[in-house]
Computed example of a mutant assay.
Amino acid sequence: MREHGAGGEVRTYEASGPGAVEPGASGPGGVTPGASRLVARALTLAYEDRTVVDGLDLAVPDGRVSVIVGPNACGKSTTLRALGRLLRPKGGSVLLDGAELAKIPTRRIARAIGLLPQSPSAPEAITVADLVARGRQPHQRWWQQWSDDDERAVTDAMARTDVTALADRPVDELSGGQRQRVWIAMALAQETELLLLDEPTTFLDIAHQVEVLDLVRRLNHERARTVVIVLHDLNQAARYADHLIAMKAGRIVAEGPPGEVVTAELVREVFGLAAVVIPDPVTGSPLVVPGMPYRPESGF
Score class of each variant (00 low, 15 high):
Ala133Lys: 03
Asp150Arg: 04
Ala122Pro: 14
Arg134Tyr: 00
Lys103Glu: 10
Gln118Leu: 11
Gly98Met: 09
Cys74Val: 13
Pro105Arg: 03
Ala82Thr: 09
Met158Cys: 12
Gly135Tyr: 07
Gly91Asn: 01
Ala167Leu: 07
Pro117Arg: 00
Gln145Phe: 13
Ile126Tyr: 02
His139Met: 09
Lys103Met: 13
Ala110Ile: 14
Arg81Leu: 11
Pro105Tyr: 09
Arg111Val: 11
Thr155His: 09
Asp168Gly: 10
Leu95Arg: 03
Ala165Pro: 14
Arg107Ser: 03
Ala125Val: 05
Ala112Val: 11
Ser147Ile: 12
Leu80Asp: 13
Pro105Asp: 06
Gly114Leu: 10
Val132Trp: 00
Glu151Ile: 03
Asp97Lys: 06
Arg108Val: 15
Gly84His: 05
Trp143Leu: 06
Arg88Tyr: 08
Glu100Asp: 04
Ala159Arg: 00
Gly92His: 09
Asp148Glu: 12
Pro117Ala: 09
Thr161Asp: 07
Arg85Met: 11
Thr79Leu: 14
Glu124Tyr: 14
Gly84Met: 07
Leu86Gly: 15
Leu87His: 08
Gly114Ser: 15
Asp149Cys: 12
Asp149Lys: 12
Thr106Lys: 04
Cys74Phe: 01
Gly92Met: 13
Glu151Arg: 00
Gly92Tyr: 15
Leu96Asp: 02
Leu166Tyr: 02
Arg136Thr: 05
Pro89Tyr: 06
Ser93Ala: 15
Arg107Glu: 02
Ala129Gln: 07
Ser93Asp: 13
Pro123Val: 02
Ala125Gly: 12
Trp146His: 08
Gln144Ile: 06
Asn72Arg: 00
Asp156Glu: 09
Leu86Pro: 15
Trp142Ile: 15
Arg88Gly: 14
Arg152Ile: 03
Ala102Tyr: 05
Ala125Arg: 10
Pro89Val: 14
Trp143Asp: 01
Gln140Glu: 01
Thr155Arg: 03
Thr127Cys: 11
Ala99Asp: 05
Gln118Glu: 13
Ser147Asp: 04
Ile126Gly: 09
Asp150Tyr: 01
Leu166Pro: 02
Gly84Trp: 02
Arg136Asp: 01
Asp168Ala: 14
Thr106Trp: 08
Ala157Arg: 03
Gly98Ser: 11
Ala112Leu: 12
Ile126Asn: 02
Leu86Val: 15
Ser93Val: 14
Glu100Ala: 12
Ala157Ser: 13
Arg160Met: 07
Arg169Glu: 05
Asp97His: 08
